[in-house]
Design a protein around this nucleic acid. Structure first.
Length: 819
DNA sequence: GATATGTCGCTTTTT
DNA sequence: GCGACATATC
C-alpha cells in the first residue's frame, strides 16, 4: 500500500466516531449518557432553572423558533446559554449530537462544555458539535475536502505561512514587495474571505485593490493552496459555505441534522460565518443567538454588527429577549461604563442595572511616564495582595488583571514584575507556538504528516545547515514547478537526475531517507492508534519497529540534528529553546498521534501554563472579553494608544466607536475595583514621546471617579465641558494625598513582600559578584552587585538589569537539558 | 554557502 | 529598539 493510500485509510478511520453517522447507531457513550439523563431526571428535574431571573428563564424555555438574546456585560448570558442546552437535553427535546453550539474562542467552548456537564451531573462527551466556528468547520471540511479539491489530511496554515506563500507569489508576479507589502495583500484576501467571496465573486468595486492585481493574486493563492493541500483560516469557513451552496443534498442532510443551533457572541460573526449559520438553520429555524452590540470589538477582523441588527429580518417571528441585570460589577463601575458607552451613536440601546452596591469609585491616576506607571501598578498590586491597600478585603494575585490596548504595552509590566519578583502570567503574548524553534520542529512533523507541505519543507530543508543554499533550493523549485510535484518529490528527482552536487546532494539525500523512515514509523503508529475499527490494521500492531509519536518526535529532533544545533549554539537563548523543545515533546503526550497534535496547534494557539501559584494576569482588552476580575487595572489611556491612532485613521468614527466599546469592555471586566491610568511620556519605537490623556478619560462621568494622584503632566487641551483634563492640570499634584502616599511608599518600597520573600526563599540560590548566571528571558550575564535578594546583572546581550535572585540560576545549570 | 554588518519599518487587536 | 531582510565579506 502506498503511503498516500494508507494515510487516507487512517484519516477515514479518524472520523469513525464522528457525530454524524453516529446518528443511526448511537455510540456507547451516548447511550450511557442518555441512560444517565433518564436516571438523573427525577432528582434534579428543572434544577438548572433555579436562580435564573425572569428574562433568563424566558430565554432558556423558548426552545422553538428563532431567539435573539441581547445580553449586556455580566448579565449571565453564559448561564442562560448553558441552561438552555441543559434544558434541551434534560427534557429530551434533542439528543446531544443534534445540537450545534458555536463559540468564538476555545476558552468559551471549554467553559460551556464544563458548565453543561456540571448542570447535567456528567460529562458531555456526546456533544460533538459544541466548539468554535473554526474547529467545527475543520471537522466538516475534513469530511468533505474532496469537494473543494483538497485531501482530508490538509494542513491548516497560520498567518506566518500565509505571508511567506504570498511573498513568493508576489515575487513571481514581478511586483515590488516594498511598495505593495504582502501584509496588505494578506489583509485584503482575508477581508474577502470573511465576506465569503471566492476569487470570481469579488465585486468589481474591489478590483482595483493591491495595484489592480489583488484578484489575480487571490486566485493564484487559492490555486497554490490547493496544490499544497492546505487551507488558511478564512478557507475553513469559506470552503464550507461554498460546499453547502454547491451541494444542496449535502446541505439538506446537515440542515435536517442540526435541530437546535446556539451561537455565542453573535455580534462578532462575519459574513461567512453568518452565511454558514443561516444555511444550517434554515430548515428547523431553531436558532438562538446571544450577543451584545456594545461589545462588538472585532470589526477590524470583518465582524458585522449588522448581523445582529438584521436578525429579525432574517428570521421572522424572532423572539427578542434583553438581559439587563448586571450581577458582576459594583454600581460605580457600571455607571462609569454606561457613561462611556453612551457616547456611541450606533447602538441598539440597553441600560444595565446594577444588582450590587455602589462600592468603590473608579480610580484615575496620571503618571510621569510608562515606567512609573508600571512601578506604581506593581506596588499597588503588592499592597492589595497583602491586604494593606484595600479596606474591603485582601485580594489574591489571581483576582487581579492588567488589561492593555496593545500587546507591546505588556513589556513594561513584565520588566517591572520580574524586577520585584511579582508572579505574573501573560495571556496572548508572544506565543509558545510562534517561537522559531517550535515552528521548526513543527515543520518536521508537518512534512511527515503531509508530504505536500512545501512551506514546511522549505523551512527546514537547510535547518540545521545541510549545505543546501539558495542555488540548490531554486533548482529544486524549478523541477517542482516543471513537473507539478511537491518540493519533497522534486528533491528526490533532482538527486536522481543528478541536478544536485556535493554537499547539497548528500545533505538532501540523507534528509529524504530520514523522512521516509520517520513517515513510515508515524504511519504505523497512527494506523494502530487511530483506527480502532475492524480490518484496517494489516500490519504493525505486533511489529517490533512500532514506536509511539512521542518517541518519534524525539527521534526526529535528534536524528535531524536539530536538537544538536541548539545544543552547540552558544547564544544566550539556546538553552531556553531546548527547554521549549522539551516542552513541545511533553505536550504531545495529550494526543494520540502527530496529526492530531498539529491540528490542535493550528486551531488552538494558546499555551496553557500550569496554574500552580497565584499570578497576576496581563492581557489585551480583546483577550479579556468574557472574563471578569475583582480588581482591574487599565493602563495607557492616552491619545494615539487608546484610542489607537491606527484605528482612527483606518475607520474614522466607526473606528472610534469600536475603541469606545473596547473601553466599555475593559471597565465592565471589573467586579470591585477598577483603576484607569495614563502617562505623560512614553517610549514609542524607542523614542520618547509626550502623550496626551485619552479622550475617553474626559468621558468618564465625574461622579463615579476619584482622581487619585497626578504627578506633573502635560495634558490635553481643556475640552468644552469641565473635565478631568482640567482637574489634572489644576490639581496641585505634588501635595495630593496620592502623591504623598506614593512618596512614602517609595522610601520603604516593599510593603507587600514579606510573604513573597518566604515563597522565594525556598528556591533562591546564593549569588556573589562575578557569578555567571542565566535568566529565561535575558540569557546569560554576570552579577555585578548583590543587595539582599536583589541582584544587579550585566547581561551579555540584554544590558544591565536589577532582578530578584529567584528569577535567575547558575549558568552551569542551564545547559542541563535533554537530547 | 555561511557568517557579519547595516538598513528599514514597524505595533493594534486573533480564530 | 527590535527583528526581519539585504548587502558585504570570508
Amino acid at each position: 500500500m502506498s503511503f498516500e493510500l494508507r494515510y487516507r485509510v487512517f484519516m477515514n478511520s479518524f472520523d469513525e466516531d464522528d457525530a454524524f453517522e453516529a446518528a443511526a447507531r448511537p455510540s456507547l457513550s451516548q447511550l450511557a449518557m442518555q441512560g444517565a439523563m433518564r436516571n438523573a431526571m427525577p432528582e434534579n428535574k428543572g434544577e438548572y432553572l433555579e436562580g435564573l431571573n425572569a428574562e433568563q428563564r424566558e430565554a432558556v424555555l423558548a426552545l422553538e423558533g428563532p431567539v435573539l438574546m441581547l445580553a449586556g456585560a455580566g448579565t449571565g448570558k453564559t448561564k442562560a446559554l448553558t441552561s438552555r442546552i441543559a434544558h434541551l437535553l434534560h427534557s429530551a427535546t434533542a439528543r446531544p449530537n443534534e445540537i450545534l453550539a458555536v463559540t468564538f474562542t476555545n476558552k468559551a467552548a471549554r467553559e460551556m462544555k464544563e458548565r453543561v456537564a456540571r448542570m447535567m451531573g456528567h460529562s458531555v462527551e456526546g456533544m460533538p458539535w459544541l466548539g468554535t466556528f473554526h474547529s467545527i468547520c475543520v471537522k466538516q471540511l475534513r469530511r468533505h475536502a474532496e469537494l473543494v479539491g483538497l485531501k482530508s489530511n490538509f494542513t491548516i496554515l497560520d498567518t506566518d505561512d500565509q505571508l511567506r506563500l504570498l511573498k513568493q507569489l508576489i515575487a513571481l508576479h514581478g511586483i515590488d514587495e516594498k511598495r505593495w507589502p504582502a501584509r496588505l495583500l494578506a489583509g485584503i484576501i482575508d477581508g474577502w474571505k470573511n465576506k465569503a467571496y471566492t476569487p470570481d465573486r469579488v465585486p468589481a468595486a474591489d478590483h482595483a485593490a493591491y495595484n489592480g492585481q489583488g484578484v489575480a493574486l487571490y486566485r493564484a493563492y487559492q490555486e497554490r493552496l490547493k496544490t499544497l493541500n492546505a487551507a488558511d483560516f478564512g478557507d475553513l469557513l469559506l470552503h464550507m459555505v461554498s460546499i453547502f451552496q454547491n451541494h444542496p443534498d449535502l446541505l439538506a442532510s446537515y440542515q435536517r441534522w442540526f435541530r437546535y443551533i446556539l451561537v455565542d457572541e453573535y455580534q462578532d460573526t462575519n459574513v461567512a460565518q453568518y452565511l454558514w449559520l443561516r444555511l444550517l438553520a434554515s430548515e428547523h429555524k431553531n436558532i438562538c443567538c446571544v450577543g451584545d452590540d456594545d461589545q462588538s470589538i472585532y470589526g477590524w477582523r470583518g465582524a458585522e454588527v449588522g448581523n445582529i441588527l438584521r436578525f429579525e429580518k432574517d428570521f421572522s417571528n424572532a423572539k427578542i429577549i434583553r438581559l439587563e441585570q448586571n450581577y458582576r460589577s459594583t454600581g460605580h463601575i457600571l455607571a462609569a461604563a454606561n457613561g462611556v458607552i453612551s457616547g456611541n451613536t450606533e447602538r441598539l440601546g440597553k441600560q444595565l442595572r446594577a444588582v450590587k452596591e455602589d462600592g468603590e469609585k473608579l480610580r484615575l491616576v496620571g503618571h510621569w511616564d510608562g515606567e512609573v506607571e508600571a512601578r506604581w501598578i506593581g506596588e499597588e498590586i503588592e499592597a492589595m495582595a497583602s491586604g494593606v491597600r484595600s479596606r474591603l478585603r485582601q485580594y489574591s494575585l489571581e483576582d487581579m488583571a492588567i488589561l492593555v490596548r496593545a500587546s507591546h504595552q505588556m513589556r513594561a509590566f513584565e520588566d517591572r514584575f520580574l524586577t520585584i519578583g511579582l508572579n505574573y502570567r501573560v495571556i496572548g503574548g508572544p506565543r509558545f507556538y510562534e517561537r522559531k524553534e517550535i515552528r521548526d520542529a513543527m515543520a518536521y512533523f508537518r512534512v511527515i504528516c503531509q508530504p505536500e507541505d512545501d512551506l514546511a519543507f522549505e523551512r527546514i530543508v537547510n535547518t540545521p545547515k545541510r549545505g543546501v543554499g539558495d542555488k540548490a533550493i531554486k533548482d529544486i523549485q524549478v523541477i517542482a514547478r516543471r513537473d507539478r510535484i511537491s518540493l519533497l518529490a522534486a528533491a528526490q528527482l533532482a538527486i536522481d537526475e543528478g541536478a544536485l552536487k556535493g554537499k547539497a546532494k548528500s545533505g538532501i539525500s540523507k534528509l529524504l531517507t530520514d523522512f521516509e523512515r520517520w513517515r513510515d514509523l508515524n504511519f504505523r503508529h497512527q494506523n494502530t492508534n487511530g483506527a480502532q475499527s475492524e480490518g484496517l490494521i494489516e500490519d504493525g500492531a505486533s511489529d517490533p519497529a512500532e514506536i509511539n509519536h512521542i518517541a518519534l518526535a524525539e527521534m526526529v529532533l535528534d536524528e535531524s540534528g536539530y536538537a544538536a544545533m541548539w545544543k552547540n549554539d552558544k547564544s544566550p537563548d539556546a538553552p531556553g529553546r531546548l527547554e521549549n523543545l522539551k516542552e513541545l515533546v511533553k505536550a504531545l503526550e495529550q494526543f494520540d498521534h502527530l496529526a492530531g497534535f498539529l491540528e490542535h496547534v493550528a486551531l488552538i494557539m494558546e499555551n496553557e501554563s500550569a496554574a500552580d501559584e497565584a499570578k497576576v494576569t496581563i492581557m489585551t482588552l480583546h483577550a479579556a472579553k468574557g472574563l471578569e476580575f475583582p480588581v482591574v487595572f487599565l493602563p495607557g489611556w492616552e491619545e494615539g494608544l487608546f484610542p489607537s491612532q491606527r484605528s482612527l485613521d483606518e475607520a474614522g468614527t466607526k473606528g472610534l466607536e469600536e475603541e469606545r466599546r473596547l473601553a466599555y469592555v475593559g471597565i465592565t471586566r471589573a467586579e470591585e475595583i477598577c483603576t484607569i491610568s495614563f502617562a505623560a511620556n512614553r517610549r514609542v519605537y524607542g523614542q520618547w514621546q509626550s502623550q496626551l490623556a485619552s479622550r475617553f478619560i474626559d468621558e468618564l462621568p465625574a461622579d463615579h471617579v476619584n482622581v487619585e494622584a497626578m504627578t506633573g503632566l502635560n495634558v490635553a487641551q481643556p475640552a468644552s465641558s469641565p473635565s478631568f483634563a482640567d482637574r489634572v492640570s489644576s490639581a496641585d499634584a505634588y501635595d495630593s494625598p496620592g502623591w504623598r502616599r506614593m512618596k512614602a511608599r517609595s522610601q520603604h518600597s516593599n510593603i507587600g513582600s514579606a510573604a513573597k520573600m518566604v515563597i522565594n526563599a525556598k528556591a533562591t540560590a546564593v549569588f556573589d559578584v562575578s557569578d555567571r548566571v542565566f535568566h529565561q528571558k535575558f540569557g546569560y550575564g554576570e552579577v555585578v552587585l548583590v543587595e539582599g535578594d536583589k541582584l544587579t546583572i550585566e547581561f551579555d546581550h540584554s544590558g544591565t538589569k536589577k532582578l530578584v535572585s529567584s528569577f535567575v540560576r547558575c549558568a552551569d545549570d542551564a545547559g542541563d537539558v535533554p537530547f
